[in-house]
């Protein structure tokens, strides 16, 4: 499975979203599913899926679908040339 698919699936699993609900416009606090508690579950899921460790500063930085990708990219998760 490609990383981008894993990334989308992590959103669906953690936030209990349907496939069509996961879009690039998703942001923390803008849906009832991605609230502060959902955020903790999402972070745990991302850590598991991509085998990375996200500390509290990075957790704050991960506040949208796009910023999450950028953050994981910096931690070595390749979404483009995999």
């Amino acid at each position: 499975m490609k990383n981008i698919e894993k990334y989308r699936n992590a959103f669906m699993d953690a936030l209990e979203l349907e496939e069509d609900e996961v879009s690039e416009d998703l942001a923390l606090g803008e849906t009832s599913e991605w609230d502060s508690l959902g955020h903790m579950i999402l972070i745990s899921t991302m850590e598991d899926v991509f085998d990375v460790s996200l500390d509290s500063e990075w957790m704050s930085e991960f506040d949208s679908y796009k910023s999450g990708m950028a953050l994981l990219d910096r931690l070595g998760v390749d979404f483009v040339n995999e």
Partner: peptide, 8 residues
């Protein structure tokens, strides 16, 4: 946060 880490 430390206690909630890893909770899914």
């Amino acid at each position: 946060v430390p206690l909630a880490k890893g909770k899914k």
